[in-house]
Design a protein around this nucleic acid. Sequence first.
DNA 1: CGGTATTAGGTCGTAATCTGTCCTATACCG
DNA 2: CGGTATAGGACAGATTACGACCTAATACCG
Lengths: 320, 320
Amino acid sequence: MTDTPGRLLSLLSLLQMPREWPGSELARRLEVSPRTIRRDVDRLRDLGYPVEASRGSIGGYRLVAGAAMPPLLLDDDEAVAIVVGLRTAAGQAVAGIDEASMRALAKLEQVLPSRLRYRVGALGAATTTMPIEGPAVEPEVLSALAAAITNRERARFRYSTHEGAQAARHVEPYRLVTAGRRWYLVAFDLDRDAWRSFRADRITDARGTGARTTPRELPGQHDGDAAAYLQTSMYTSAPTYSADVTVHAPAATVVGRLGDTPQDVVAIDDTSCRVHRHTDTLPWIGSKLVALGCDFEVHGPPEVVEHLRLLIRRLQAGVR
Amino acid sequence: MTDTPGRLLSLLSLLQMPREWPGSELARRLEVSPRTIRRDVDRLRDLGYPVEASRGSIGGYRLVAGAAMPPLLLDDDEAVAIVVGLRTAAGQAVAGIDEASMRALAKLEQVLPSRLRYRVGALGAATTTMPIEGPAVEPEVLSALAAAITNRERARFRYSTHEGAQAARHVEPYRLVTAGRRWYLVAFDLDRDAWRSFRADRITDARGTGARTTPRELPGQHDGDAAAYLQTSMYTSAPTYSADVTVHAPAATVVGRLGDTPQDVVAIDDTSCRVHRHTDTLPWIGSKLVALGCDFEVHGPPEVVEHLRLLIRRLQAGVR
DNA sequence: CGGTATTAGGTCGTAATCTGTCCTATACCG
DNA sequence: CGGTATAGGACAGATTACGACCTAATACCG
């Protein structure tokens, strides 16, 4: 009975036990020569299994981690976090991550203590993911950019504008930022000699160049916080305004419809409230007001009023 | 690249997922012939792994749950999935999950083989999470509802409407659905004697009652898919229309601005295109058209035109 | 009822692989 | 220093894995 793949799986099971196995012992149990055992161990290592060996008189083989790891001691919240994270990642805009995260979840489940395994399994089995359409980030892009960032390497990639045109970019990558289901790269653009943020889903063929970067500081008072920098830089392309609006709807309703950002909504009475949004672009303010679906009065500033008049003209032209 | 043992491990990894795999699909993914897949399945069975198969048109292979598995390694995509999942979970609308997922990520990193540990560490260190404000789901609520679902128990909880009123609910929970960063519970409401979907962030004090549920079938042709049911049920509250619009902007721009859903956008020439959105509610269509930020002409249907006229009146009243 | 898509399994020829038996090098420990 | 362990190269022969092709059995669907 010489079944090579089966023997490898058996070897894996043996090595999983928390003890050391001399090669001769393994050879005896698997009924092959010690030379074959050495080759099998080699193959397991090629497959990525961390088989460690100690030489000398009391030497032997054992599997170190990634396998039999009883002390993966997570508390309940951490277990929930794993399921929540991997489940929502399944609906995420990263290519092929739905399956990958399900496989990862199944594998992680194997190494959890039984109480948590039950909890994780229940939460995973009771949950369905609603897929989200949209441009997808390539996992390789994320990996390559992350490697370049930690290695302090420059990086090159191809970037597509939203019109579809592609161009090569040469940057010093600073941070990846995840915001909702979008991924951004904050980097110093070497060609344009300025800081830029890039949408990761528009990046292809990313790779580190090997050239070391000079550490740079993010502009502005962000204290190195790439998320904060991104937040403001996304609005610097267009001027922002603070809209002041009275809305004829209950405050609670308005908070709900304005989406996920709790704005400064002050109730006036049961049927109306005053909304004060800040740092919004004109189109965004207009879109949100329309989305409210109820009557309102704009108090200012004049630019917002003017923009709404433009919207009126556009709508009138559109329905003619 | 014919690596039989590695392929067997990959096969196990695929089969442990909670779905059925047709042999042809497995053959395609593992890049071998279907005959080889059958032989591999035979070998796994010989080794004691309970691979079950169902014949017929919707047949396939699967691994019965609870089987003792050899230690399976995470591949690169799965490692990326874990970081992506736990990182985005950190910005997620689940209370306290940011810390919990960071702790879980740190602990997972400890037990990964070194190659992946480096990859995961790099991706984790290079990534910043932009926090998302919004109502938060309690992890305990998710755990309790998940437990009730898998145990087929009834559940009671308090539910807040978006006006802020609270009420006790008594349901037979069916599934948790995660859509983007929102969590929903699809359940049969025992008081109202009808199927309902609940936003998990508005649920508090959820607990299973211990009373067994009678298995029910979701209404509609969703074949038990809670996500599909939720998708349609979210729109049944309002009628939907198919807007037909000519937009004076390049097709690529329009696709980008319409958000994440790739719609039926057909380019007319370099500066205009025809958009045909279906199953949208009237407010949604209006909001999207305004958000486009360019000129357009609406061809129909009449209800959409009428709704845009309403928007015009609202805007005119608002800026007066 | 027939059509179709699935699992299941036999056979065969070729190419690739695996294995055992040498051999040497290296590291640890008493 | 000697014993024992891992590590690995070279080689010849036996074995196996693979794909291509075939038939059978089963389940679903119209």
